[in-house]
Every structure is written in C-alpha cells, then in structure tokens.
Design a protein around this nucleic acid. Sequence first.
DNA 1: CTCCGCGCGACAAACGTTTTAACAGGATGT
DNA 2: ACATCCTGTTAAAACGTTTGTCGCGCGGAG
Lengths: 334, 334
Amino acid sequence: MATVSIKDVAARAGVSPGTVSNVLNRPEKVAGGTRTRVEAAIRDLGFVRHGSASTLRAGHSRTIGLSVIDIGNPFFTDVAAGVEDMASERGYAVILGNSSGSRLKEERNLLVFAEQRVRGVLITPSDEDPGRLERLRERGIAVVLVDHPAERSTQCAVAVNDVTGGAMAAGHLLRGGAGRLGYVTGPPAIRQCQERRRGAEQAMAAAGRDPAELREIAMPAMTAKAGQQAAEKLLADGTLPDALFCANDLLALGMLRGLLQAGVRVPDDVSLIGYDDIDFASASTVSLSSIRQPTYQLGRVATELLLDECDNPDTHAHQQIMFQPDLVVRESTR
Amino acid sequence: MATVSIKDVAARAGVSPGTVSNVLNRPEKVAGGTRTRVEAAIRDLGFVRHGSASTLRAGHSRTIGLSVIDIGNPFFTDVAAGVEDMASERGYAVILGNSSGSRLKEERNLLVFAEQRVRGVLITPSDEDPGRLERLRERGIAVVLVDHPAERSTQCAVAVNDVTGGAMAAGHLLRGGAGRLGYVTGPPAIRQCQERRRGAEQAMAAAGRDPAELREIAMPAMTAKAGQQAAEKLLADGTLPDALFCANDLLALGMLRGLLQAGVRVPDDVSLIGYDDIDFASASTVSLSSIRQPTYQLGRVATELLLDECDNPDTHAHQQIMFQPDLVVRESTR
DNA sequence: CTCCGCGCGACAAACGTTTTAACAGGATGT
DNA sequence: ACATCCTGTTAAAACGTTTGTCGCGCGGAG
C-alpha cells in the first residue's frame, strides 16, 4: 500500500518534484540526462501518476463520459467500441453510463460525470430536453450528440442519414419489381422509424408511384418476436405485399421466420430487407439484405470531435456530421 | 465556468467548509437546522462535489474498472449491463476497458485504472498471467475475476460451470437418441471450449458410451461463418453425425444455415444445440436449443463482491462463486 | 571584462476536499 | 460550586500534482 508519489521519484533521481512533473508532461523542456535519470527512477519505483491529484490541480481530467440508451443493443455496442478505441488511443478513459431508456438513470449518470469532472460527454439523448445538456456546457463540459441531430449549431453532432437509408431500401425493392410495398416499423415516436419511412416514400415518388400506397405495419417493439407477430398479422389478412421493408434487422429476422414457417418463399414470393446490418443478418437461413450503418466509425468520429473541442477550444468549429448508410444486398431480395 | 466549491456553499450557509463536508459525508453528525441550511445552499448554488479532490484527500475513489475481452460479444455486453446497474445503484462509476483480446490493450487499460485510482477492478483476463493482477492488489486495488476460475483462494471470482453446461448439452442430445455425436468447437486454447468438451465426455461416459467416440470439429474462430464452413466440411466427408453440439451459438447458427442449405433437415436428420443462448438463438428459422448462462447476474454478483471487498476489507471473505447454466430446449433438437 | 540572454531546474503556491484536534457552551453528576 | 461529559462546530493540516516565478551558471556579444 506504500503508494509512491512524484516526490519519491524526485528524491531518487536527485531532482525536484517539479522536474518530474515536467518529464511527465512536457518532456522537451528537460535536458536529456536528467530526463533519462527521472525515467529510470519512475520505472524502478513503479510510479504511476495520481490522476485525481493531476485533475485537481490542472483543472481538467483525462476522462470522457459515454451515455447510451441501451448497451444491450448491438448498434450501441459498436458505437461504444469505436469510442473506446479512439479515446484509448488519445490517452483518455471512458466512463460508461447506461440509461436503459430511463430519464432518471440518465440524469444520475450525468451527475456522476459532473462529479468526475469529465472533459466531455458523448450522449444519445433519451428525450428531447436540451436543458440538461445546456447545464453541462455551462460547467465547461463539452457535449457531442451521437445518432441524434444537433439541436443548435453551437454543438457537435454525428448521425447517420435515415432518410437516405430508407430510400435505398425501398428503391432496391422497387428496382426488383415490387408492386405492393409494406413497411414494418416500431413505435411511431421513434425518430429513426419516421425518417426511414420518409425515405421510403421519397423513393416511391421518385419511381413514379403514389407514396400513399406504402402499407405500414406498426409494432409496439422492434424485436424479433414482434417481427414474427407482424408476419402472422400479414398472413391472417391474406393480402401479402410483394416486398417488405423492416425498420430494423430484428423485425426482419422475425418476419423471415414467420414467413418461412408459413411456407412463403423468400425472396421468390416476397422480398425482404432489414436495417442496421447486424452480424446475424448474414447468418440467417436466407441471408438478409439490409442497410449498413457505419456504427463503429460513428463512435470514433464523435470521440474525435469531442476531444478536438476539449483540446483546442479556441480553434474548434462545431460540426454536424451526417454519415451515409450503405445498401447490402443478400439473398432475401430479388 | 465559475465552478462553485464547498467554500462558496459554506459562506452562503454561514458555516465552515468542514461542516459542509460533514453534511455531505456524515449527515447524522450535524444538527438539523444547520443541515437544512447547508442543503439549501447546495441546491441554490448548484454545487456538485469535486470527485478528484475528494479522492485525493480521502485516498480512494468511487469508481471501478471493468476490463472485458470483447465488448462486441453479447455475452460481455450482458455482463457489462449487470455491472453498470449494480455499480450505479451503489453510487459507483464504471470505467470501461475493452482489450479486444490484445494483451497490450489490456495492459494499457489496467494502467489507466491505476491512474484513476479505481477502488477495484473486474476483469476477464485475456491470458493466464497472474502477475499483473498481483501488482494491482499490491497497490490496494481489489480484483474480482469474471468468467474465470480463481487462481488462488485469496481472491474473489465468479464463473459459470462450463463442464456442467457441456454435460447438459450432450446429455440432452443422447437422451434424444443420438448415436454418433459431434462437437464443433473453436481454438483449443480457449478454456471454455475445453471444459464444455470435458462435460460432453462425462455425459457420454454416464450414458455408458465411450467418450473417445466424440468427434471433434475444431474451427479457428467461433463465428457464424466458421460454423457454416464446419457444415461444409462435414458434408464433404459424407458421414454426418446424428447430433451436433456447438461450443457457442454463433457456430451453431452458421452450422444450421449450412445444413439447411444442403437439404439436411434439422432436427429430423440432425439434432443441433448451441451454447450461450444469445437473443438471436430463439429467432432463427429453426429456433435453436442452447445452454443459457446467467450473464447479467454474473455481472451483478461480481460487482457486489467487489464492492463488499472495498467497503468491508476486514470482514470480507473471498468467495469463488460458480453459477450453473440451464438447458433451453427449442426446435433444433429431438 | 562586463553584461545580456538563455537553458535548465528549484521553489512554493495553489487546486477542493476530508479529517483530526481543539474548543465553546450547555447539561449532568457530585 | 466544581469537574466532567456531551454536542456541534471550527481551524488547519494534509493529499499529490501542476505551474508561474525566480535564480543560477554558462556562452557569446559588445
């Protein structure tokens, strides 16, 4: 438990504590001989800098907070991996907060972040209230929105264009010769669901079709189970569309299962496309066409923006970056 | 940026800084009137305690480190969710470290943890070297192993019994009338693969069968793609076992796809069981029988042990907790 | 030979909290 | 009346860094 401090290092190297600090933080300021001597002392004693003391004195830490809505969702997991990698490369630690969609938990996480005096926060807000984030900024904590459009141009944000993605999916189905088109979606409150639908409608209009013909099947959840229920609903109706666009892959996989079990052939009878391109999309029996989002990249870039804002507050220009999704064609579509 | 400190609160409430600290840390020590006055001042000024200053003086922080091998793996994601929930309930923050299987990255993460003076570390070690962990303990940082047996009885560990799980899977297949049994596995270096195999052999012995008959198909990775390749390999050989036990669900899903595409019926021609019971196991075309592990619980309990060790170092008794897996029977097995 | 500038380090003052010892002022017991 | 013990509060000393200021010694310019 004999915690070794900068003083011990200084004593052993025969220099002052300030010099040790300089070796740590601005090595170019200290003469070669002294530096190697100090470095040797650091190694010998197994010294590791006390982050808290450093933060206290310097006024800022080398940690960032990451608040996500659901760490169990592969989408956020990939984002988190990108964040962690980039932060780690730049010597920052990541404090993880999982809000589970609960506003209370999100609030609590932000408080923890504030107590730790994180340098900045990456957040996918669970609702539209900008007040909390404003309060963070007042405390000098940078904020970057992830997978959410910027509420104002005074902040950074990264997102993926869901309208384009929706248009890609529907366009692909239309090019495949689809007559009647169905859109299987989740709760209407979810922004992504709305925008993907909007994209699909645009694609229909561009193909000279009436967007109002798009048949919407809305489910209360975006899970595989909900997808299968949607299939049952469609089959009970008796009028199966020629092609189905599902708002995420889990819905699509459930739908696929429901259709195949009922003897409907995919893609011969019905074309099917999902969204997100999760790992399992390519692993299902009939591999699933989907829309790929650069999730890992989303995390990396968001972190890069955040750290730039922290390290160069003066020259930093706020950016709203919109990534473009990709169409991935597999077996489930004609 | 006017950061408000304990002194400002003290001034406004007309007390000394020490009293404010007491209100924060041992409210029972301060008289009711003073306390409410101080609390009001805290609210009015929007004071939030400076975690680093607190850590520096108190000698310990309210953060723990979590080092996992692959945050993209649903298994670890579930564990992380459990950790985050429990830590958050007890007022601890979680610093996330993702080693991606790289020893170097793991090392770097542990260094970050040490710098942040985390109270303790939860780790799924990426290899068997106990040295690093020993060094952490010398620094007064508690360590709990996750999904890894304890190297010695002087530390806590939580894991799931892989031998039992393997026995459950193989036993289920044997009870279904399987004659020839195959075991599709990953790299032999992975401890879990070995132990699950050992369990399967025990089940065979218990059923009066020669364990040597267990046919092993080892793949270099444990992904869906590798599973499909394994299927191709088996089909090329021409001698398909009656039943297949895959060391994880991804392998099993790939295998399922490969078999179905070749016209092999599951479970009529071949029974198939996976391991982990990931979400998608129940959503595949032929839903997958599997072995469920209490992952979320694993994370919660590990955190509980860690915090107990931190908060009651004297009375704390090291524990090695072994969870039992569950057999989940679905459509893929007879 | 003096003076200036410069490179390198030492010194010391913070940073915001926790904690110990000390203390005031009653209440209590003798 | 005095000694004693509470209870509630304060003052001050840490904790381990960072950082601005200052001083020393040396080499080159005047």
